[in-house]
């Protein structure tokens, strides 16, 4: 098993912290949670996706562009859905976000399957 590099962990953690700070700031600035959180959540959740991918590499010693992309797409979809779900009027955006999540899940699953076969 390959150990995860400290720099990988730190860069992922920094992204997550930056996303959390932006999310918190926007929440404070606008006084509530809503679609304005999208930039913060995108950074936060993409940071999580990156860390998960790094963990995957460390655990399996394999790289998969499809899995990497799939995770990022899935978490972008989650970020979008989270920020739009606060608004009853943004149903169309919520549906689009769910579609992005679905694409991300499929891509991640294919990436997993490919990695498993290898």
């Amino acid at each position: 098993m390959q150990k995860m590099k400290a720099t990988d962990a730190i860069s992922g953690l920094v992204t997550i912290i930056a996303g959390a700070i932006i999310t918190g700031f926007l929440w404070w600035f606008f006084g509530s949670f809503g679609f304005w959180e999208l930039p913060g959540l995108l950074i936060l959740l993409v940071g999580i996706a990156e860390v998960l991918y790094k963990v995957f590499i460390a655990q399996t010693n394999q790289r998969s562009a499809r899995l990497h992309g799939g995770l990022i797409i899935m978490f972008i979809g989650f970020a979008s859905y989270l920020s739009f779900s606060a608004h009853i009027m943004l149903g169309v955006y919520q549906i689009i976000s769910l579609a992005i999540i679905a694409i991300g899940i499929i891509s991640t699953a294919i990436g997993m399957m490919t990695a498993r076969k290898a």
């Binding site: 655990q59 989650f78 989270l82 779900s85 606060a86 991640t108 990695a115």
Partner: peptide
């Protein structure tokens, strides 16, 4: 083994996302 590790990684991803999703949605609705 490798397959198990992949499964664990995958499940962790979904679990984090699910927790975030339900937590934030609950706050606003």
């Amino acid at each position: 083994d490798k397959v198990k590790k992949i499964k664990v990684t995958m499940m962790t991803s979904f679990l984090i996302a699910f927790i975030l999703l339900t937590a934030f949605t609950g706050i606003n609705l």
